[in-house]
Amino acid sequence: MKKNWPVYTLGALLAAGLIAPLASGAAAPGFWLEVLIGGLMAGVLYSLVALGFALIFKASGVFNFAQGAMVLFAALSLARLSEAMPLWAAFALSALIMVVFAWLVERLVLRALVNQEGVTLLMATLGISYFLDGFGQSLWGSDIYKIDLGISKDPTIILESVFQGGILISKEDLVATVIAAALVAFLAVFFQKTATGRALRAVADDHQAAQSIGIPLNHIWVIVWSVAGVVALVAGMVWGSKLGVQFSLQQVALKALPVVILGGFTSVPGAIAGGLIIGVGEKMAEVFFGPVLVKAFDLAGGGIENWFAYMLALIFLLVRPEGLFGERHIDRV
């Protein structure tokens, strides 16, 4: 219990930081709540991308740098296909494309690199990422494309009688949250209850042991990359409907990096919790802390949101190197 004091201290500090704007009177309660909700919803979206990272890392030990490119590619496919067919058909076809992509990756890249160093695999995924970015644009074009989920984009204001100006809720973000929750529930069932899920968990625990009892490693890799591909498709669909499908979607993946660092590379709940912490943390920091910082030190200005997320992740690493929900490794030397 004593060993955990840095984690508790950090938790307490974060909680204090969270309520500081409210307690100091710098923010009206309504607005504070709005920023909190906004942060949580952005966090859910980060979690969606982070999930893809965590899935592949868990099953194969590969840090898949191409997850962001996969989000972009899947979203581009969905957007362009939905111009010619109904959305559900475009979704199904895009999912199929992602499965074919997973199969190709296993065939052409991973199979040749079995038992290589982790860093070699990381570099390979970096290569896949660049290929997919360029090829996706050559194939589908580099304009801004639309995914229309048919959700109203106008804001909903609630609790107007309680807070001045009410609380702003975006329907799109709400739908995104529901979709993310459904996806997580589906993945949990898939991992816990199906034979494939059990095999995946076995591979995650120990490659060699799994192979020795007859679990086909190549097969498993195709499956896990396919699942990550479908997760990328869902993330791309949600982000794309919100922001338009465009090359910059790929950069959203960079936001997922601090999330997986914070949550732990191997943990699905970690990806969710990490996403929420980063989402809330960066919005609170940007809105309440940023202007104070600029004023106090007479800085040149500019946003702090982006580096704040990484700083938060680094602080977590100081006190819990394996991440919030990561597995603790004990190596014998």
Binding site: V35, G38, M41, A42, L243, Q251, V252, V287, G303, E305
Partner: peptide, 13 residues
Amino acid sequence: VTAPGVEQKSAWL
């Protein structure tokens, strides 16, 4: 707004 400006929630809040 941090470039490329995909995520702007805090700015608009």
